[in-house]
């Protein structure tokens, strides 16, 4: 691991919705060292919140479990990996369709993956039925580049 990244961190927390705020604020604090704009930080917080919510209400269906976040920084790139050991997604392709939700009764809009995709530069979902789901997202912090240019 050493030398691969400029910096990295890991947090593990219980699958409770009250931890959604904790998760996005912690990741935002970690990313802050790259001096992102308010908009960039807001995009990252939203994407993290979406992935963590998915793990809690879909992966664990509000049952006990733990969610893990690994965040890494290399140059001005952020990589965020959010994983759970929940029930997994049967068909990732369908789950990723805008407005598709398996839980309309919870007033879920089916926009989670679409938001992650459009707020981050890259997003990948790996899921295995009965074993869990991992979402990997990447974003380049542009404000760093702009500063170097000027």
């Amino acid at each position: 691991m050493k030398g691969l990244y400029d910096n990295e961190m890991k947090i593990v927390f219980a699958s409770k919705t009250v931890n959604e705020a904790f998760a996005r604020i912690t990741v935002a604090a970690f990313v802050s060292q790259l001096d992102p704009t308010i908009d960039e930080l807001s995009d990252i917080k939203t994407a993290v919140s979406e992935a963590v919510t998915n793990s809690i209400i879909h992966g664990y269906e509000n049952e006990e479990g733990s969610v893990e976040i690994n965040a890494r920084i290399f140059a001005n790139n952020v990589e965020i990996e959010i994983s759970d050991s929940g029930k997994g997604i049967e068909n990732v392709e369908i789950a990723m369709r805008p407005l598709y939700t398996s839980k309309p009764n919870l007033e879920r809009s089916g926009m989670g993956f679409t938001i992650m995709q459009s707020f981050m530069d890259e997003m990948k979902v790996e899921s295995s039925l009965g074993f869990g789901t991992r979402v990997i997202m990447r974003k380049k912090i542009r404000s760093v580049e702009e500063e170097q240019v000027s």
Binding site: S49, T53, R108, S109, G112
Partner: peptide
């Protein structure tokens, strides 16, 4: 409100 994720969509539509 400075932050809202997609949970807000369902909350508003409901």
């Amino acid at each position: 409100i400075s932050f809202m994720d997609s949970s807000g969509i369902g909350m508003v539509l409901g």
